[in-house]
Simulated scan of single mutants.
Amino acid sequence: MNALAAAPLFDALAAFHRDHPHSELEPVEENYDQPVARVRSGSLDVALVGLAGDPPERLTTQVITNDRLIALTPPGSELAHRGRTALADLFEYSVLSLPVGTGIRNVLDQACAALNIDPAVALVATSPDTVAGLARRGPWVAVLGASMADAYPDLAAVPIDGAEIPALLALVWPERTSPALTVFLRHCREAFRGTR
């Protein structure tokens, strides 16, 4: 989870706990498919997930960010001097990405599939900070969402042409909610206001 998502979610959890100190909260971190399936089955009340394109069917969704993919690279690199890259040309470099099952990676894989490109990802890391940290040091180019670029001002953000599927960060929950979930969602809406 990146700082853009973590801080407001932590604020919402804290506000809910202050209002309802006897309610049980159990934050869980999992890849995309697992929390969506668990919300559908009722074993999770709400999930913050990364999505590729459209929100999941039969769930209520609040989109937090709607991003395009970008490449992050040191400012002196050849790619930074180009100023933008086509998706097919991106793989001339050693690409770093988040794991399969995350929203950003799903967008990358789907965009590559639409153009019949083999997404040869050289290295996978589980957090955006790790992906960006590695891009600072090596021959790698990080692929993340555009809203994350401000968190890494020492890296050049290079737009990727041909990756048109949006990467969404969204809260998802069932259409019917409990009173406690309704209150928690109100805190989430307040905490995430202005993060788009």
Score class of each variant (00 low, 15 high):
S77D: 09
R58Q: 12
A167G: 15
V63A: 15
H17R: 14
L98K: 01
N31M: 05
L96Q: 00
A86H: 09
A37D: 14
R38H: 12
A12G: 11
A170D: 12
G53Y: 10
S127Y: 00
N106Q: 14
L69P: 08
A5S: 12
A191T: 10
G145Q: 03
A149Q: 03
T85W: 03
E92Q: 11
S77E: 07
A191F: 08
G42M: 04
A149N: 04
P174Y: 06
A120F: 04
A5E: 11
R82G: 05
I117R: 13
A12I: 10
T102A: 01
R137C: 00
L144Y: 00
G76Q: 11
N106V: 04
N2S: 11
E78R: 09
R186L: 08
F10P: 01
G103M: 11
F16I: 04
V183A: 14
L59E: 10
S77W: 05
L90I: 11
L51C: 07
F184P: 06
V158L: 04
N106P: 03
P128M: 01
S94P: 02
I165K: 12
V100C: 03
D54A: 15
L13W: 06
Y93S: 09
L168W: 10
E29T: 05
H17I: 02
L185G: 07
G42H: 06
V95E: 03
A15T: 09
R136V: 01
D45P: 08
H187D: 03
I64K: 05
D161I: 11
T60Q: 15
A125R: 01
D67L: 02
I70R: 03
S97R: 03
H20M: 06
P128K: 01
Y152W: 05
I104N: 02
R38S: 14
P179W: 10
L134V: 00
L185F: 08
R82P: 05
L48K: 03
H81N: 11
F10N: 13
A113I: 09
F192Y: 15
E92S: 09
L90Y: 11
N106W: 04
N66S: 14
Q62G: 08
D19Y: 02
